[in-house]
Amino acid sequence: MKNIIYRTLSSLSEKTELPLTDICREFAIHTTGRREVIIEGADNLKKYETNEIIIGVCGGYISVFGNGLEIKSFQKYSLCIRGDINRIEFGEGGQK
């Protein structure tokens, strides 16, 4: 249900060219090289391992793979991951 709402709002945002970031809480990823990732719009933490971290976001989840991964801070809507990052994957739906 949440996914359907998210897709509807995203397509509406594209067509109207209006930012709907606040309503649908779309996530944003900022990376600094391959050592730091800041994910804005993080809802919850699904998995936390040193080689894989899965974060739940609006409309899906984000998987971060690497070595020595560590969550530096988990604030209101942002989460900071540091370590040796190999790849970032996006997934739709609920839990993986």
């Binding site: 933490l45 699904k46 998995k47 391992e49 040193t50 560590e70 801070s73 988990f74 604030q75 209101k76």
Partner: peptide, 23 residues
């Protein structure tokens, strides 16, 4: 219990830092 604890605290607006995951 790491993920569960973090989600509970985050859901109650308690923000955390320095979370090294050790094997």
């Amino acid at each position: 219990d790491a993920e569960k604890a973090l989600n509970i605290l985050h859901g109650n607006m308690i923000y955390m830092k320095k979370m090294p995951k050790k094997d």
